[in-house]
Simulated assay, not measured.
Amino acid sequence: MKEAFKAWKFGPVVPSLYTEYQLYGNQPITNFNKSSGIYSILDFDDSLLGEDAKEAIDYTLRATAHLTAADLSNWTHKKGSPWDAVYKGEDGTKPISDDLIKDYFKGFLLKQ
């Protein structure tokens, strides 16, 4: 099931993942529910991906591996980020479009 990111007060959120793992707070997630979306991502068969997708994932991992959780959180809140473009103090139900996310990161990658 595809679910949109939502612009919540403290950043972009996938609501079902937040609900499932909120009990961990700011601690590492140590137990993955096998029926959850995150588990299926961790156990994903990458043979289903094309070479472009694999290269994009590998590049993203290399480019962000040195960042802390705080760094990543700060990044999501930067002026001009997809979250910043959408969040205007509402109750967090406004979706962040895939196109907005794609365009932002495409622009970021092209600056590198």
Rank of each mutant, 00 (worst) to 15 (best):
residue 52 D to M: 07
residue 66 H to Y: 13
residue 41 I to P: 01
residue 92 G to M: 05
residue 96 I to G: 03
residue 51 E to T: 14
residue 15 P to S: 01
residue 52 D to F: 11
residue 63 A to D: 09
residue 47 S to H: 13
residue 48 L to F: 15
residue 56 A to P: 05
residue 86 V to S: 00
residue 2 K to Q: 08
residue 25 G to Y: 02
residue 20 E to D: 04
residue 105 F to G: 04
residue 74 N to M: 09
residue 88 K to I: 01
residue 98 D to A: 07
residue 13 V to Y: 06
residue 64 T to E: 05
residue 64 T to Q: 04
residue 25 G to M: 09
residue 112 Q to G: 12
residue 101 I to K: 04
residue 31 N to I: 11
residue 31 N to E: 10
residue 99 D to F: 02
residue 94 K to D: 05
residue 76 T to Y: 04
residue 53 A to K: 10
residue 77 H to T: 02
residue 89 G to Y: 09
residue 96 I to R: 09
residue 23 L to Q: 13
residue 103 D to M: 02
residue 35 S to A: 06
residue 71 D to K: 07
residue 88 K to F: 01
residue 112 Q to M: 14
residue 49 L to A: 07
residue 29 I to S: 06
residue 77 H to S: 07
residue 86 V to D: 03
residue 102 K to R: 15
residue 51 E to A: 12
residue 58 D to M: 09
residue 43 D to V: 05
residue 103 D to E: 12
residue 8 W to V: 02
residue 89 G to S: 04
residue 45 D to W: 09
residue 4 A to Q: 14
residue 91 D to M: 08
residue 39 Y to S: 05
residue 4 A to L: 12
residue 112 Q to F: 14
residue 109 L to F: 11
residue 6 K to H: 14
residue 49 L to E: 09
residue 44 F to L: 05
residue 105 F to L: 10
residue 32 F to I: 11
residue 4 A to R: 11
residue 111 K to Y: 03
residue 104 Y to A: 00
residue 59 Y to N: 07
residue 86 V to M: 00
residue 1 M to I: 15
residue 49 L to T: 09
residue 46 D to S: 10
residue 68 T to A: 02
residue 54 K to Q: 15
residue 29 I to D: 01
residue 94 K to A: 11
residue 17 L to V: 10
residue 72 L to H: 07
residue 73 S to V: 12
residue 41 I to Y: 06
residue 46 D to I: 14
residue 105 F to I: 02
residue 21 Y to T: 06
residue 50 G to D: 15
residue 28 P to K: 00
residue 58 D to F: 11
residue 22 Q to F: 04
residue 26 N to R: 12
residue 46 D to Q: 06
residue 58 D to W: 09
residue 63 A to S: 14
residue 109 L to T: 11
residue 61 L to G: 01
residue 51 E to V: 13
residue 44 F to W: 08
residue 94 K to G: 01
residue 104 Y to M: 02
residue 17 L to A: 04
residue 88 K to L: 01
residue 112 Q to L: 15
residue 19 T to N: 02
residue 48 L to M: 14
residue 3 E to C: 02
residue 76 T to N: 00
residue 31 N to V: 14
residue 50 G to H: 06
residue 16 S to Y: 07
residue 10 F to W: 09
residue 59 Y to T: 11
residue 83 W to S: 01
residue 13 V to L: 04
residue 77 H to K: 15
residue 81 S to R: 03
residue 41 I to D: 01
residue 56 A to W: 03
residue 21 Y to D: 03
residue 32 F to R: 09
residue 66 H to R: 08
residue 24 Y to L: 01
residue 8 W to M: 14
residue 9 K to L: 07
residue 104 Y to K: 00
residue 70 A to F: 10
residue 28 P to I: 02
residue 54 K to R: 15
residue 76 T to L: 05
residue 4 A to H: 12
residue 60 T to W: 13
residue 56 A to H: 07
residue 110 L to W: 10
residue 77 H to A: 03
residue 71 D to T: 08
residue 6 K to T: 06
residue 85 A to Q: 15
residue 90 E to R: 03
residue 49 L to S: 03
residue 72 L to Q: 06
residue 110 L to R: 11
residue 90 E to S: 12
residue 32 F to E: 04
residue 37 G to W: 08
